[in-house]
Design a protein around this nucleic acid. Structure first.
Lengths: 116, 116
DNA sequence: CGATAATGATACGGTAGCGAAACAATCATT
DNA sequence: AATGATTGTTTCGCTACCGTATCATTATCG
């Protein structure tokens, strides 16, 4: 199966999926928050504040704030690393998995309609 | 050419493209702003504030503010409709086209690496 | 132990987003 | 011309984000 996209297809896919995301009643995450959420769920753990900051190229408070926001939405969970109690391990939640599942559905759905 | 995506592929594509967008030095647009920008450039004109608000399912001030922000970034331009001077016609700019071209490149680039 | 380093959270001042409501300008209707 | 409808902007009070700098806690090293 190929996922080669033409320039037009790529932008149309992004357009329609983003539009549906905006129109949906799903929590309105920033691009950075969405990136963090995707990273946590798609890249093997463990995930730390410092690591995420470095990966995204942002400062640590950005990560702390994003975890605060998404944490209160139930999309993500924090816990101390007992082996080095300075670290915070960021963990997945059921709600977070559901959120991303919905996002995946939207993308696939819009991608399907790209067939020319 | 097929653009059928598996659930995993769809999310990985979104993840890597979003990550590169966040890491890039490109202006940090919100999801709504990005959606507006894509709509203006991908859907045939004319585009009005009212029309965009209805399409995105948001209030008019959201569009006005987004146009203010993206306008000062040079991504978008406003002009009066001379046939009905109540309307504002939203127009494309060279910088806006370049921004989206770059976004398209990123998506294509990451999509290419999805081939299994 | 004591000093230094590392990690994440917090404080701060500033900017920008939000929806609801009110507003000015323009058009349509009579 | 006068009234009412339509369009986009502005104002209001509020919330959330930003980067820099600082802080508290914990670990490491001498």
């Amino acid at each position: 199966m190929s996922v080669a996209l033409s320039p037009s297809q790529a932008l149309h896919l992004w357009h329609s999926a983003t539009l549906r995301l905006v129109r949906s009643d799903a929590p309105d995450l920033t691009l950075r928050q969405l990136s963090i959420l995707l990273h946590i769920y798609l890249v093997p753990p463990p995930h730390t504040v410092r690591g995420l900051a470095s990966t995204l190229g942002v400062t640590k408070p950005v990560i702390t704030r994003a975890l605060d926001s998404m944490g209160s939405l139930g999309l993500v969970r924090r816990s101390r690393d007992e082996r080095d109690r300075r670290n915070v391990i960021i963990q997945r939640t059921v709600d977070g998995a559901l959120y991303l599942e919905k996002l995946g559905d939207i993308i696939i759905d819009e991608g399907r309609e790209l067939s020319l």
